[in-house]
Structures are given as C-alpha cells and as structure tokens.
C-alpha cells in the first residue's frame, strides 16, 4: 500500500507510454497524410492500394497489428526492440485512422474554393497545396486531437508485447505487492489525469476554431 514505493515505477512506465504516443502521433499523422493523398488521388494505381492499406489498418484491432509486428518482423530479419516494434505497430494504426480524418477534412473544403483558385488561374499544385490542403487540415484538427488522446490510451496495449510502458509496470508492481485493486486503480487514474484534461482542451480548441471561421 506504500504509494511512494511503486509510484516512481509507474511514472517511469508513463514516460515510456508518452514516448510511444509522441512517436505514433508524429509519424502516424505524417503517414496518414500520405495515405489520404493516395486515397484522394485520381490515379487508380495509387488509389486502390492506398484504400486497401487504410481499410486494413482500420479494420484490424491494434492489438493484432502489434502481435503481427512483434512476431513477424524477426521472421523477415528485421530485429527491433519491443519498444520500436510497438512504435511501428501503433504508427501504422494511427496512420490508417488519421488518413480518414484528413481525407474527410479535405473533402469538406467548399467547392467554391477550388473554383476561385482555378478562375484566378492557379494551376493544380498550388491550388491543392496552398488553398485546399491548409483548410482541409484545419477542419481535421478536432478529430485528430481526439485520435491523439486515443492513441495515448492505445499505448496500453503494448503491454502485450512486453514493452515497459505504464500498463506493464502496473502488472509487475501488482504482482509484487498483491495490491491489485489499488495499483490498477492508480494506473487508471494516471491515464485519466492526462486523457481527461486533454479532452477538455481539445473541445476548447474545437470551439475556438469554429468561432474563428464563421
């Protein structure tokens, strides 16, 4: 029951969870943008593969993706630490989900914007890059923020491939102390203390964005 004994361990685990979150969000969103561009492409050769990758990424449980990466990469000769295997798996899942949000954002840009740019004589690339994409990304921000919070919670799944993040630490500590309920409740509180205020912040940002765009 001595919090001061095991809390540091849990917080160490939290640090790892946050690292995983940062990695999966940064690389996941970048990859998600690539997927979104692929899915929106007019070239069938780009669109179909992108669609398949995204639908598979969204259709498979994140846990399964983690197992596939964990068991599968060594088989093809790629030796990653558990941490990096988890980062890779989570990045893929985040990329698939974020690509849908980015694509929806891009599609929600009013047609008139593209027409105005075309009427001015802007060619396709600057029209997309400087007019459509910035507005599209802005629309996706609320959804992407929600996804970031979910991916933080998703790092708890890395427990299953023996990454020393928060959940793993909780399991080890509870096995040592037998104070199962306390440890897991404290763990839950740690997650909540970060996730819940983060949700409030994202709702606030969402309202601010909506207001600035009347």
């Amino acid at each position: 029951m001595d919090l001061s004994l095991y809390l540091p361990r849990l917080l160490d685990g939290l640090g790892v969870s946050l690292q995983l979150t940062a990695l999966s969000v940064v690389f996941g969103y970048a990859l998600g943008l690539v997927f979104a561009l692929g899915v929106s492409s007019i070239h069938r050769g780009l669109r179909w593969p992108a669609l398949v990758v995204v639908e598979v990424g969204r259709g498979i449980p994140a846990l399964v993706v983690l197992y596939i990466v964990y068991y599968g990469l060594p088989a093809v000769g790629v030796l990653l630490t558990n941490f990096w295997a988890a980062a890779a798996g989570l990045t893929f899942t985040v990329a698939a989900y974020s690509s849908e949000m980015i694509r929806a954002g891009i599609q929600s840009v009013p047609r008139g914007q593209g027409e105005a740019a075309a009427a001015l004589g802007l060619s396709r690339l600057p029209t997309f890059a400087r007019v459509i994409l910035p507005q599209g990304l802005r629309s996706s921000i609320p959804a992407l923020m929600g996804l970031a919070i979910q991916s933080f919670q998703g790092t708890s799944l890395a427990y299953s491939i023996s990454v020393n993040e928060l959940m793993s630490q909780a399991y080890q500590v509870s096995s040592l102390t037998f104070a199962y309920l306390t440890v897991y409740v404290v763990t839950g509180v740690i997650y909540a203390v970060i996730a819940v205020p983060a949700t409030w912040v994202s709702v606030w940002v969402e309202h601010r964005l909506a207001r600035g765009h009347a």
Binding site: G112, A116, G121
Partner: peptide, 24 residues
C-alpha cells in the same frame, strides 16, 4: 491542354456569388 486552360483563365477574372475568398 492545361497550359491553354491556364492561359485563358489568366486573362479573365471572375467574381462569385459566395465570394470564395481564402479564409486561412
């Protein structure tokens, strides 16, 4: 061709009912 299209559009300005200014 894209070039002909752009050449034409760069000679003609258009104003829309819904303004279509770039909000960002």
């Amino acid at each position: 061709t894209d070039r002909a299209l752009l050449a034409l559009r760069r000679q003609v300005g258009m104003v829309f009912q819904s303004f279509n200014l770039f909000p960002h």
